[in-house]
């Protein structure tokens, strides 16, 4: 059974790049895509993904609002969320941890590094 990963990202190029990298990984994953926090909340509840990659700056609803909603829902609270953001200040890292994100991954990305991180959280929960 493949793992489901929910990518929440408003930038099309970034979505394409994550998709490109995941397709070329050895991981057996299904990639779900949400373009903003609101869609992410709905898709997380409906699909119960194994992992969420969450951009923090987005239109409609940003990650800072979407993560607490996901963490507050009994069904989705245990899904690991990786903050996937261009904000790399130490205080941002602390804030994302406080929200309940397991990691803070700063863009621009390194494919191998990102895949290792994804694999770490997928392995930790099985399929």
């Amino acid at each position: 059974m493949s793992h489901k990963i929910l990518l929440v990202e408003d930038d099309e190029d970034n979505r394409d790049l994550v998709s490109f990298v995941l397709q070329r990984s050895q991981l057996d994953v299904e990639l779900l895509i949400a373009e903003n926090g609101e869609e992410a909340v709905q898709m997380a509840t409906a699909n119960l993904p194994h992992l969420i990659l969450m951009d923090m700056q987005m239109p409609v609803m940003d990650g800072w609002h979407a993560v607490p909603i996901i963490k507050a829902d009994e069904r989705t609270k245990n899904i690991p969320i990786i903050a996937f953001t261009a904000q790399a200040k130490p205080e941002d890292k602390i804030k994302t941890k406080q929200l309940g994100c397991v990691e803070h991954y700063s863009k621009p990305m390194d494919p191998e590094e990102l895949l290792n991180l994804i694999q770490k959280y997928l392995n930790s929960q099985g399929s």
């Binding site: 790049l17 390194d110 494919p111 191998e112």
Partner: peptide
Amino acid sequence: RAVKEVISKRKLLRSSSSTLEWLRKV
């Protein structure tokens, strides 16, 4: 082909060389 594709998005990548190295393994 993969190199061309990834390089078109190089501004989103931390390092082109490490990405190319990763692709070489892939």
